[in-house]
Structures are given as structure tokens and as C-alpha cells.
Amino acid sequence: MTEPAPMTEPAPMTEPAPTTAPAAGPGSALDRELHELADKQVALGEMRGSPSVNPVNEPMIRHWLDAMGDTNPAYLDQGVAPPAMIQVWTMPGLRRDVKERSPVDDMIARLTDTGFTGVVATNCEQTYHRPARLGERLTPATRFSGLVGPKQTALGEGYFATWNVTWYGDGDDPVAEMMFRILKFRPRQRASEKAPEKAPERQEPKQPYPLRPAVNEDTAFFWEGVRKGELRIQRCSDCGELRHPPGPVCPSCRSANRTHIVSSGEGVVYSYVVHHHPPVPGRETPFVVAVVELPEGVRIVGNIVDCPTDAVGIGMSLRATYRAMDDELILPMWAPRET
């Protein structure tokens, strides 16, 4: 999906993050770059768009009132538009080709390109200076107001981007203004944190997924990592040997001192199957299971997702992704690594 125009609503949705998402984090090179771009966009100031195609008009108002179930007679009686309709006048509608440039677009595009693919709107504040009058054409002007972040949110690491739109009337006076804020985030399957306010899929109670792993003190670190969006590989604290699946004692040096590394999240298909039959509880067939070889030198089993089954092959490059199977269980899975 294309990024929404600044004045349309960002849909609460997520897309898979690009593989090669550069490291973010406060003070990182990427963080500095994003803030520099934000400063530049802010410095552009207010950019005016074209006047609305339709003047404020009775049919659109009537249609809007009908749809909202709003029976307030004041608007048409007084020849003005409902205040909350302000944004409607300058919506691009189906004429996507007339989408106008705004200082917001570059910022959002850069966030998307650097892995902050998820988007959710967080605030919409409108102030109405005077009613928009029938016959009047409104002209929007947009300015980028700032970028805040990176912030750790329940949806993932992200940046809040804010912009303001002012609508000018026929007399070039401000009719209304709006502050709009979105969170652009790196999607991650949420861990065991409290259900975030803005996590659409999180609030839908899911059927408990029937295929649960047994976990004990030797394997708990792995599943804790998965909940944090990390693929952890056991490492012997004494001889350094990496091992998956993990176990209580290092087979190389007898040490029971264990730690783990966080894998790069990249892998290559070593072998795979496409399961057709019989039906598997909690799964829709066909589905792909693969033995994935990690650059760290161990193998791990997981599903390949976001890929047609007939496109899977040995040697294919993958990146780890994390999927919530129900309200508790997250499984590490694998998606094709884009080239």
C-alpha cells in the first residue's frame, strides 16, 4: 500500500520490515539522519496546496450528515459546513494523480524505507476559527512540525511524526487548523507487555494455539528472546561453542555455564517440506516448514511465511520474523529476504 497522503488517514496496519533495516536507537547514524531530515522538512515551513475542487456545497454536506446520522439542522439553515467536515473538502478522493507534494511525504517515505513500515495514527486535533461557508473554496497548507523518537512502544521501536494543516478560506483567512500525529514503527510481534492501546490485532482474543512448546530452565531463554523479537543461540560461557537446540551442558567442554548470543536474524534454507496432509491443529494447509542454516553456524527449524510455497527452495535467503499465534505464544518464523 502506498503511504497515505498527509491529509488522509494512515490505516492501522503493518508491513514486513525490510531485511536490511539499519540499526536505529538514539544517537545512531540512522537516528541522526532521520532527525536531520526532519529538521529540513520543518524548515520548509508551510506549503500551500491547491484550492479544493469542490466548493463547500449543500449536497456533500447533506450526504455527510446523512451518513453520520447527524440531524442537526443548524448547518444547512445557516449555510455553513459542519466543523468536523473540514478535512473532507480537500481530500484527494479517487483522483490520486493530483496528490500534491507536502513536506510530510519525504519524511514518511524515509521512515518506511529504513524499516519503520508500520503506521498508526495517534492524534487528531482540530480547531475551528469560523464555519466554512457554502460556495467557498478552501485551500490547505501543510507544514511538518517535528519528529520525536526513537521511542520504544508496544508496537515496536518507532518515531512520532507530527504535521499541521491550516485551511484558508476565500478571504485567505484561516478557517480551521489541524494537528495530526502518527507513529511510524518497526513492526515486531509484541511481547508479553500489556496490550498496547493502539495494537489492533492485539486486542482480538485469539483461539489458543494448540501446538505449544514445552519449556524448561534449559530452554526458557530462547522463548524469552522470541517474545522480545530476538533469535537467541546458546553459547558456552567457557569455550564459546554455539549450540542449537540448546541443552544444560556444553558437549564440548562439560561446562554448565551458559549464555546466549542474539543471532543476526538471517538464514538460508537448508531443507524444507510443504505440508499438505493430514490437517494439523491450529494450521491451514499447505504450509512450509524449513531447516534454516544461520550464518552463526547452527540450524533451526521454523515456518517460511510470506512466500508462495512453490517459490521456496534450498539456498533461499531468509530473515527472521515473529508471529503471535495467540495471546501468549509467539513463534519465530522466516520470510524471504528481499534482494
Binding site: 537448508y270 517440506v273 521454523g302 515456518n303 534450498i314
Partner: peptide, 24 residues
């Protein structure tokens, strides 16, 4: 615990376990 590295991914029938070797 051994099965837990496979069963959650739906890799849980003898045919699927063997198929993984066969593919390789």
C-alpha cells in the same frame, strides 16, 4: 523438549519428518 523445536511449527507427522531428509 526435543519435539518442542518442531511441533509448534506443525512439523509433527512422520511423513513430514522424513520429507525434510528426503528434500535434502
Amino acid at each position: 523438549l526435543e519435539m518442542s523445536w518442531h511441533v509448534p511449527f506443525g512439523l509433527m507427522t512422520p511423513a513430514s519428518w522424513v520429507a525434510m531428509f528426503a528434500q535434502r
